[in-house]
Design a protein around this nucleic acid. Structure first.
Lengths: 350, 350
DNA sequence: CTCACATGGGTAAGCGCTATCCTAATATCG
DNA sequence: CGATATTAGGATAGCGCTTACCCATGTGAG
């Protein structure tokens, strides 16, 4: 090798110009050879260009391409928390579908703060992404909400596409999740299994997803004339630790006769199970637990968690297809939320 | 309201040029007002520009900025699987730190395929990211490996910075994880707890992380003169289901006298626990289980999983600081891998 | 054998920005 | 008070790429 390295000391990447010069062709021909342009280019030239590109470690500058072409190859994804399995699964779906379409995903986390969400949307918009997917959970009465809508409207007005996951946010397209109906079915199934005395752990007031799930659940119970006393509904954080704390609260309130607790998502349910166990009780036997989402862990806790299954990865993929307009027949059907009863809610002899 | 919308029918985003015209100033002044340039600009002008920008829903085109400035605000992150809690936690750390630095993260998943990894690096390089973080696990003898190194070398030669997480990949900087030492400590701790008869579930042959953890573990056992018979070491996929399948294999081999099984990561350990339970045994009592990583779920399975704790989110953050060169004192210390003994490995009366 | 017409290469005008240089106006000083 | 610094806008030359456009060929029809 020696020191005659291809471009040992270069501090700046090879440009298309360099490649063209190296290949002894014009810039245009180089460009046409490297990206798949409509124009045909003589095969000998093409080979020369490709060889030169390889020799110079050329990598096309996507920013420059985006500027010149007027469109980027980027998808922006906004989630509440990257590490939360719910969002991680959705993100995995988006990433996979994007990859399938040759797009690149840029991801940001709102940390459940709607001010941040707004800022992030603003900043992400600068990327001129083809689409923007908002999975971060929305609040009902959010003051930043109209500003967000305005920002997104501007984004769409300039050719972008936005897709919400979860809640339908009016002028925009969305992959609606059947939070209410799913929870309602779950409630009915649990009543059928013999449960009568319920408690619920839901997210802090106003969180749309949490509210929908709770109200659906209550509606399901209501169909059998069952209700939940207000002090049996706790609203901690929408996280594993929130579930743990909420369950402790319930236990401290001396809710001895609670047969079953419904947590508005699986991570909370998992936290609740740990709290139950830490209180010296056995989840599933002393207190049954049901969640929502069917995160992978749901199968692996003890007892396995009853829940409402949401095809999260598929939801992520679909959100992207929806925004891109590359829907197929499958996408005509609504996303199915399916009740999955496991050992955490054993049938109860009446 | 009405139809006199600010720019209702615009199909293309407002440019800085539009803003400048609207504000009645030059392009240069508009540019200087909107980004924080070193040059001072008259406050009245600045206000005019800002007002015009707001009125036109202006959002600076990051691609154009990148082209003009010669640097982007992007960091590229490569993981094996977005939904895997190990990578999700790391990604969360990277995203948080990036956000802290005002950078944007683009993420891609190799799906554990090194061909894809190479392709992704090539394509991501086109973004001209400031840094590239490779967390996806590496193979020891990978044929695509030298091509990858070459690609990364080219990236660094043109001013980028790369950081590996996990394995040290020679010319590049890395956040080394003490896989071997951590596993060794775990082995010692388990021997101290009274275990003598071991089995192991590790990743497929050649996976660096898995190999290091296994060999560290074996070394730890070796210190007490203990070894693991070859048929007690299974190499399934490095995933939850791999752990499940591997454990089934072990059980089918009639390994009745296995006291404890070490899984090379927590998701495998969790799968193994499910397999144990499905075989009618009780994890922790009939067969003890230990993992590695300390993913959040480790606390919530039953019994809680003994493992080696890795501060995954912190590792993600540190990888970015390392690549950026914004290290602080904390970063001088090596990442601590800490043995955490929980109920899945009860002390064994000798 | 001329002429309309594909074919495929090169030239150059942008894409939306930044940054350098230029310049007029104001401030500073012996 | 004239001379020299500062200051802060405005033109304008790129950044790396794409894409009209242009134009020298080659081709087949009339």
């Amino acid at each position: 090798m020696g020191t005659g390295d291809t471009n040992g000391e270069r501090r700046t990447p090879a440009t298309l110009h360099d490649v063209a010069r190296e290949a002894g062709v014009s810039l245009a021909t180089a460009s046409r050879s490297i990206n798949g342009s409509t124009r045909k280019v003589n095969d000998e030239y093409r080979q020369r260009v490709l060889a030169a590109a390889a020799k110079l470690d050329y990598s096309p500058n996507l920013s420059a391409q985006a500027v010149a072409r007027g469109t980027s190859m980027t998808v922006a994804l906004l989630v509440a928390d990257v590490a939360d399995p719910y969002f991680a699964q959705i993100a995995a779906g988006v990433v996979r579908e994007a990859d399938h379409e040759g797009l690149i995903v840029t991801m940001a986390a709102t940390e459940r703060d709607s001010e941040r969400e707004l800022e992030l949307v603003r900043s992400l918009r600068g990327q001129r992404p083809r689409v923007m997917i908002l999975a971060a959970s929305r609040r009902a009465d959010d003051p930043a909400s109209t500003a967000l809508a305005e920002e997104l409207r501007a984004f769409e007005a300039s050719g972008g596409r936005v897709a919400f996951i979860g809640t339908a946010e009016e002028p925009f397209r969305s992959v609606p999740l059947d939070n209410a109906t799913g929870a309602e079915s779950l409630a009915r199934a649990l009543v059928d299994a013999g449960y009568r005395s319920f408690a619920a752990l839901t997210g802090i007031e106003g969180l749309r997803t949490a509210e929908d799930r709770l109200s659906g659940f209550l509606a399901g119970l209501g169909a059998s004339g069952i209700s939940i006393a207000p002090d049996r509904i706790v609203r901690p954080a929408f996280t594993r630790d929130g579930g743990y704390d909420g369950m402790r609260t319930l236990i401290e309130r001396g809710a001895r006769d609670i047969e079953i607790v419904f947590a508005a998502n699986d991570v909370m349910a998992v936290g609740a199970m740990s709290a139950i166990r830490d209180a010296g009780l056995v989840p599933g036997r002393d207190v049954a637990v049901a969640g929502f989402d069917d995160i992978p862990t749901a199968r692996d806790v003890t007892p396995p968690l009853s829940t409402v299954r949401l095809p999260l990865e598929e939801i992520g993929r679909r959100a992207l297809r929806l925004a891109l307009g590359t829907l197929d027949e499958v996408d005509e059907l609504p996303v199915r939320a399916e009740v999955v009863l496991r050992a955490s809610t054993p049938a109860r002899g009446v």
